[in-house]
Structures are given as structure tokens and as C-alpha cells.
Nucleic acid binder design. Structure first.
Length: 296
DNA sequence: CTCACCGATTCCTCTCACAG
DNA sequence: CTGTGAGAGGAATCGGTGAG
């Protein structure tokens, strides 16, 4: 049994296509087909259901896939063990949602560059869930993202909650009116939120639907600062983690609404593969700086 | 029915190990 | 050094399938 064959099989399942797997492994499609066939022959089992489109694993193929991922991770860690006898070098691939990027990246990248001059950094932006998926695919070395406390993440990924913070509902200065609100009171004002896929938005939507209310969106846009600016201009209500509100240049133009039946919280999570090798220290520094920038 | 796409197969070339 | 066989990968091609 060959590791290359196993690698090809895992790539096919991951990409759901032999063509894409070939592209990922920088081979041609026939090479992938043959490797997977060799692997199936070695194991004496049919691992792919070739009658489906896209290509899917058989029930046994799925079990083999899970086992293969664990084996390949072990092999990676073995290679790192040998290769990591020195200062961190190469490329550190980081993922952050845009919400956090504005706040943490400048400092984090500067400190990593200063501490590990031989290390190149590469940053990817996206929703937390897509960053985790990319990490599972081996495309990222670490990611910081905001998720609700107690969330369960995929087994192959190490997750660590760095800090907990409240989410605040904000409105334009002077438009708050009465001192205490309920969620249904906000209904008519409408919201300025991230596009669909954002965890904050999903949490709000859940809370509203529990009360039989629907989410009324005034504006959808990326970027916390832009959203808070729009809220300050009276375009609707905003939902933002407390630390980002405190550091916003629009803070003085905003009021926080006290909503008695909606007290959402969010954790800052640091994710990385279980085996980091010589990237362990830079990743820890990244988590440390991110936590520090958010919570002071 | 046609076309595009995808996976499998065939045939060829290249590389490497090994025996003589 | 040379010939041979095995193994791996690429180009071309075939066949199946789904969308229009």
C-alpha cells in the first residue's frame, strides 16, 4: 500500500472529482484514477461509487477515508518532526473573518514578522465556518474566528476559546428613546448586518424566529466599521462584539440598546491543525495578539 | 438530439533498479 | 556500460450522463 495512492484517494473524496484531485496534486486525471484503483486493489474493497455524480465514497470508502485522514496527519507530523529542527520558516497561512481582520491583523502580522523574520505570512478572509473547512482541507495553518460559546468543532482540528465577549445592539446616537427594549421592539427599525452566512446574523435570526418574528434587513454589507458608520447615520440597528464597538471611530455617534430578552455572547476561538510543528510558536503568538487586540 | 463534461482505458514514453 | 523489465505518468480516446 502506498501513501501516494492513499493521498490520491483522499484528494478525490475531498474534491469530489478526479479532475480536481489531479489539479490539487499536480497530476493528470488518469494518474489519479490509477492510484485510486491501485489503492482499492491493495485493500480489496470498492471505495468509490462510480455511478453517482459527483463521485461519492461507498460506506466502506467513507470509513477508509476517515482512517486515511488520520494516517496522513500522522505522516505529516512525522515529517514535521524531522524537518522542524530550526527556527520557524516557510509560509504561515492564516485565516480571519473580515470582522476581526480590521482589528487584529495589522498588529498580529507586525509582531509575527518581528519575532520570526524568516516566516512569510499569507492571510485569507472568509466566514468562520469556511475557514474551518479550509483548515480541514489543509489549506490553512491557523484561524481566528468568532463562534458561540460551547460550540463543537471537527475532531481533527484543535480549537481553543481565547476570550468571551458580549454582542451589543447599537443604534444612532439619540435615537434610542426608552431605556429598555425587547427584541420585538426592534422589529420595525430594521438591521444593518453582514450578508447571509454570518454567525451573528444567524443567532439573531434564531432569536427572532423563536418569537415568531422575521429578520428585517435594511442594508447588507461587509466590514464592521462600514456597518457602524451606516448605523450612526440612522440606517438601522447594528450587532457588534463589545470590543469592536469600543475601538470603533463611530463609537461616539452610537448608543447601545439594552434589550432585555436578547443577550448574545460570542467567543474568540483560535483554530489550528493538531500538528503544527515549527509553526506552533507563531500560531500561539497570533492567538495571543488577537486576544490582546480584542480585549485589551 | 447535440453538446459538454467527467471518469476510465489504452498506448506510449521516461525513469530507475538490477543483472550480466 | 548495456539491456531488460517494472512502474509511473501523460496524451489521446472512448463511453456514460445530464442539461438544454
Amino acid at each position: 500500500m502506498k501513501i501516494d495512492d492513499m493521498d490520491a484517494f483522499v484528494a478525490v473524496i475531498r474534491c469530489q472529482s478526479t479532475n480536481l484531485a489531479a489539479e490539487a496534486l499536480q497530476l493528470t486525471q488518469p494518474a489519479i484514477t490509477r492510484r485510486v484503483q491501485n489503492f482499492e486493489e491493495d485493500l480489496g474493497a470498492t471505495l468509490l461509487d462510480r455511478n453517482t455524480k459527483p463521485l461519492k465514497p461507498t460506506p466502506m470508502g467513507l470509513r477508509v477515508y476517515e482512517q486515511c485522514k488520520a494516517i496522513l496527519r500522522e505522516i505529516d507530523s512525522l515529517r514535521e518532526l524531522v524537518a522542524n529542527d530550526g527556527a520557524p520558516s516557510g509560509t504561515l497561512r492564516l485565516g480571519v473573518p473580515q470582522t476581526l481582520g480590521d482589528v487584529v491583523l495589522l498588529d498580529a502580522l507586525a509582531q509575527i514578522r518581528e519575532a520570526y523574520p524568516q516566516l512569510r505570512t499569507q492571510v485569507t478572509s472568509g466566514w468562520g465556518s469556511s475557514l474551518i473547512a479550509r483548515m480541514e482541507n489543509g489549506e490553512l495553518d491557523a484561524a481566528a474566528a468568532l463562534f458561540p460559546p460551547g460550540k463543537i468543532f471537527p475532531e481533527g482540528i484543535a480549537s481553543q476559546s481565547i476570550a468571551r465577549m458580549p454582542l451589543r445592539v447599537v443604534t444612532a446616537k439619540g435615537s434610542a428613546g426608552k431605556r429598555s427594549y425587547k427584541l420585538k421592539d426592534c422589529y420595525t427599525r430594521g438591521w444593518v448586518l453582514n450578508p447571509d452566512g454570518c454567525g451573528f446574523r444567524a443567532g439573531l435570526q434564531r432569536a427572532l424566529s423563536e418569537q415568531g418574528l422575521s429578520l428585517s434587513i435594511n442594508l447588507e454589507t461587509f466590514g464592521t466599521e462600514l456597518q457602524l458608520g451606516l448605523v450612526a447615520n440612522g440606517q438601522g440597528l447594528g450587532l457588534v462584539p463589545e470590543p469592536l464597538l469600543q475601538t470603533s471611530r463611530h463609537r461616539s455617534a452610537l448608543d447601545v440598546l439594552n434589550i432585555s430578552d436578547f443577550k448574545p455572547q460570542v467567543d474568540l476561538w483560535l483554530f489550528h491543525p493538531r500538528y503544527l510543528g515549527n509553526l506552533q510558536e507563531p500560531v500561539e503568538l497570533f492567538g495571543e495578539v488577537a486576544g490582546h487586540r480584542l480585549l485589551g
